[in-house]
């Protein structure tokens, strides 16, 4: 009996002493944290993807609260709505930003290139980029080994088996930019989502001269400059034998798509053209 009594006593005493010590220590080393950080962190989506440029959601929340501003801070996952919520809580004004999405700027898949060599090394684009140009011979082409698929935290990228190129699920993609950073050839770009997801972009990153680029790939940009002339909004720049469409200036008029002789400029998510359907009907008839 006495053993039980003593042990209970000792434990209670130890507990009380420890509690007293802890009480004073906690007072002494109390970390005063802005309670707003927790609230902002709650509002943020909690994906911890790093798309905003910080280590995780909490790091972004700390930055927002400590600087008390939203300049150049944007959560791509949450998008406009979340930023608006954060802004109203913090009594700040959210920057007007367009929703964005990743696009693959290479169409040189199986269908448009001839396979010249076969790659057998580790299935990692980084290593293939160090080792050789590409299976089709283009030194800037998508290597189609799926490093972007592996790193995507939102499961938004799949390898398309018919083209052997990565395909981005635009509903899932939040434009965190991890794939853009991972791709050793900078084939993936984060662009404006556009009205009704409509986009016009150059699907090529090859900077070689026209003839060389065309030799390896049928849908390469040859830097002819036709699209530049056709564009009424100065949105297209041809530099180093490569055209680039500035998504902030592009008005989605699609003149350049028709001008491009190789088909390197592509439109996405537009409704099918009426003219085309008529032509098809005629042909059939």
């Amino acid at each position: 009996m006495s053993i039980i009594f003593y042990s209970v006593l000792v434990l209670v005493l130890t507990g009380v002493i420890a509690a007293v010590i802890l009480f004073f220590v906690a007072k002494k080393f109390n970390v005063i944290e802005d309670p707003r950080i927790d609230v902002v962190c709650e509002i943020l989506p909690g994906a911890n993807c790093g798309g905003c440029g910080f280590a995780g959601c909490r790091a972004l929340a700390e930055k927002i609260v400590n600087d008390n501003s939203l300049d150049n801070l944007f959560c791509p996952v949450g998008g406009k709505d979340i930023m608006q919520q954060v802004a109203s809580y913090m009594n700040l004004e959210a920057e007007e930003t367009q929703p964005k999405v990743a696009v693959v700027r290479c169409f040189g898949g199986k269908e448009n290139t001839k396979q010249r060599v076969r790659y057998e090394g580790v299935r990692d684009c980084l290593y293939a980029d160090m080792t050789f140009s590409s299976e089709g011979g283009c030194p800037n082409a998508c290597l189609a080994l799926g490093s972007c698929v592996k790193v995507c935290p939102f499961d938004a990228i799949r390898m398309d088996e018919t083209t052997s190129l990565p395909k981005i699920d635009e509903d899932k993609c939040v434009a965190c930019g991890i794939c853009e950073k991972t791709c050793p050839r900078k084939v993936i770009e984060i662009r404006n989502k556009g009205i009704k997801n409509r986009k016009v972009f150059v699907g090529c990153v090859n900077k070689e001269k026209g003839a060389l680029a065309k030799k390896n790939c049928e849908v390469s940009c040859i830097g002819c400059g036709k699209c530049q002339k056709a564009c009424s909004f100065d949105a297209i720049v041809v530099e180093n034998n490569l055209a680039y469409i500035d998504y902030n200036k592009c008005k989605l008029c699609r003149k350049c798509v028709n001008e491009c002789p190789t088909g390197a400029i592509k439109e996405m998510n537009f409704p099918p053209k009426k003219e085309n359907t008529q032509v098809e009907i005629k042909e059939i008839a």
Binding site: G121, V122, D124, L126, Y127, M130
Partner: peptide, 13 residues
């Protein structure tokens, strides 16, 4: 296992 390939990537990175 493609050990050498992975080591080469590491060196490069």
């Amino acid at each position: 296992r493609p050990l050498l390939d992975l080591l080469r990537i590491s060196k490069n990175q």
